Amino acid sequence: MTTQTETEMWLPIRDVPGLPRPIPAIGAGCWTIGGPAANQGTPIGWDDVNPDDALAGLHAAYDLGVRLFDTADVYGMGRSEQLLGQFVSQVSRAGLVLTSKVGYQPGPDGGHPYAPNQIRRQFEHTLTHLNTDYLDVYFLHSGDFGPEDRYLQPAVDTLQDLLRQGAIKAIGLRAPHEFAVEWADRDGLIAAQAARFLHLFQTVHPEILTVRHNLLSHQVSEGETDVFAFARQRGTGVLIKQALGQGVLLGTHDPASPRRFSALDHRSRDPLFAPAILHAVRHGLRNAGVAAGDVPGLEIRAALGFALRQQDAAVLVGFRDAAQITATITAARSPIHPADLDLVHRALQPARDLLHHLPPPIRQTDK
């Protein structure tokens, strides 16, 4: 078993607001291990997941120092939580930080996912799946609280009650993929999204946020307040997800022969995997590689380095087996030079431009 001293040699330790203790900067994102799945006809899963390999990946992450494990009730429609729970039963729960989410699964009678009785039902399922009697963070996963936000305050009240009972230690909220405080004063959809998030934040009062942030994320302008500055000003923590761009930023997807995904794999509808995007990413990474010279593991080190620049956040990385999570954490052991990171970031500007001009409702497909 890895000692704390060995952990610190592998990964920097960060004190992220909203989490119960300082933790290694990289955590395990467990969406990917849920396997193929659909929720109300929408593909939300991942192909090619072997439960034994995924369990081995969880143990490999733990042995390499990871202590934060993030999942959701909808990941694999419960399978991710169940697999993580199997792992939890084999290690010390006291040393783990477990987070899960609620908000996408309707009740058995078709009731709203945020109806209080449905939240409590899902929460009990989550505790059972995870082999635990409490969660360190429980996230409101969806921003849909019914007509005229009918279930917003009831959902907040339900989570506050769980907090008072000690069943959860902190409440979390999902932030928009693209956000700056100043955008709320503009016109159009992006303004509505920013204003909506600010309203939810003021109503929920979360201790921690989760946000997608990677080398393909749209950059805010100078002088604008991004989600990280916004969180720091309020003493709120941040968990960064999809730091590797669902693997696209590793340059392993061939645009000339794009993978075919099953109807239960969310990537079958995600424009991130469209040939034009894959081509722009691969072209940018190749240009950066030429400019940087012989830099081992340039792609993965750049992707991790970009996310880890946010000093007050923990970074979640996905995996499906031990080899994948080991490669990621090993790469994190060798930080990239800032000049090489800047080269990669500049080289990916065309890919960011392509993604930024896609219609927002299509762009926001991840759960």
Rank of each mutant, 00 (worst) to 15 (best):
T2E: 13
E8L: 14
M9Q: 15
M9E: 15
M9S: 15
L11K: 01
R14L: 10
R21G: 07
P36W: 01
N39L: 15
T42G: 03
G45N: 07
D48L: 05
V49W: 00
P51S: 10
H59M: 07
A61C: 09
D63C: 08
L64T: 02
G65V: 07
D73I: 04
D73W: 01
G78D: 02
G78E: 00
Q82S: 14
Q82P: 01
L84A: 06
V91H: 00
A94E: 14
L96T: 10
V97Q: 03
T99I: 07
T99S: 15
K101H: 09
Y104T: 08
Y104P: 00
G110R: 11
P113K: 07
N117F: 11
Q118R: 13
F123L: 11
T126Y: 00
T126P: 04
D133A: 12
L135T: 08
L135I: 09
S142A: 15
F145K: 04
E148V: 07
E148A: 14
A155Y: 01
D157T: 11
D157L: 07
T158L: 04
T158M: 00
Q160F: 02
L162V: 08
A170N: 14
I171D: 01
A175F: 05
H177C: 11
H177G: 15
E178K: 14
W183Q: 13
D187Y: 09
D187G: 13
L198H: 08
F201E: 12
H205Q: 15
P206S: 12
I208A: 02
V211P: 00
L215Q: 06
L216R: 06
Q219P: 07
V220F: 09
V220L: 11
S221E: 14
G223W: 01
A229S: 13
R232M: 09
R232P: 01
G237K: 03
K241N: 12
K241G: 08
Q242C: 11
A243L: 04
G245C: 08
L250C: 10
R259D: 12
R260H: 11
S262P: 04
D265N: 09
S268G: 06
I277S: 08
A292D: 07
A303P: 01
A307Y: 03
R309D: 14
Q311Y: 06
V315C: 09
V315D: 04
V317W: 02
G318P: 02
I325P: 02
T328Y: 02
T328M: 05
I329Y: 00
T330S: 14
T330H: 13
A332V: 03
S334V: 10
P338F: 05
A339M: 13
V344F: 07
Q349C: 10
A351D: 06
D353N: 14
L355E: 04
L355F: 07
H356V: 08
P360T: 09
P361V: 04
I362H: 11
K367V: 12
